[in-house]
Simulated assay, not measured.
Amino acid sequence: MAGARRRIDPTEGAAALAAWQEAAAPPSDLPVPRPVLATAVRYSLEELTARAPGNSVEVRVPPFGVTQCVEGPRHTRGTPPNVIECDAATWLALVTGQLGWADAVAAHRVAASGLRADLSALLPL
């Protein structure tokens, strides 16, 4: 996509995501080093924006990153009308297909507010 600004090298990001996926897969459930976790989250947020450019939905994965994506009305001030927030483990499970969108929302692992705050058509990446 033209205009998408990447801060994470795609090769490095994909490697971090693969490392997280391997560590998180049962039966290992190993802790992932914070820099690897941060890189995987930031890379996946950049990838989401590349695949669904726009500014109508804000996706927050504190403390690692935030992005705006999905075409629609642009948000510029205050709290966005469409916000999705979750922890890093939940986000990466969604990105890799280990967790489905509906299941994550039903289990309150994802906070989603607004008419456009549904990434089920975009996940897994």
Rank of each mutant, 00 (worst) to 15 (best):
L92Q: 04
R6P: 00
R60Q: 13
A16V: 01
N82W: 00
Q68F: 15
E47M: 10
G78P: 13
P35M: 08
G3V: 05
A89S: 10
G97Q: 08
E46M: 11
A24D: 14
W91H: 09
V95S: 03
P33H: 02
W101G: 13
V57Y: 02
F64S: 05
R74N: 07
S56T: 12
P26G: 15
A104L: 05
V70R: 10
A104Y: 07
V110A: 10
L99P: 03
A4P: 00
A14L: 11
G97T: 12
A23F: 02
E85R: 15
L125E: 00
P10S: 13
V41G: 05
D29F: 14
G72N: 07
D118N: 15
T11V: 14
T39G: 03
W20G: 01
V32H: 03
V36A: 05
A93Q: 11
A24H: 12
V59H: 02
Q98W: 00
S44R: 11
G54H: 05
M1Q: 09
P35H: 06
P53T: 11
P81W: 00
L92T: 01
C86I: 05
S56F: 02
Y43H: 15
A19N: 03
S28M: 09
A106V: 04
P35A: 12
L48E: 03
G54S: 11
A40K: 01
A18M: 08
L48C: 08
R6I: 01
P124G: 11
E46L: 12
E46G: 06
L99M: 13
T49P: 00
R42Y: 00
G114N: 03
L45M: 08
D118K: 08
A16D: 01
D9Q: 11
A25M: 08
W20L: 02
V110E: 04
L30N: 10
W101Q: 11
T79C: 06
E85F: 01
G54E: 13
A4T: 13
H75T: 11
G97F: 03
H108R: 14
R109A: 14
G97N: 07
W101Y: 06
S56H: 02
H75D: 10
Q68I: 00
P35G: 10
A25C: 09
E47W: 09
L123Y: 02
A14W: 03
A89Q: 09
I8E: 07
V83D: 02
T90K: 13
R6K: 07
Y43A: 10
S44M: 05
E46A: 07
P124M: 04
T96W: 01
A88M: 06
D118M: 08
Q68M: 09
E71W: 01
L17A: 10
R7H: 09
H108G: 10
V105K: 07
R6F: 04
P124L: 03
L45K: 07
G114E: 04
S44A: 14
A19D: 09
A102M: 01
L94F: 01
E47A: 14
D9G: 06
I84S: 02
S120Y: 01
A25H: 10
V57R: 03
R74V: 15
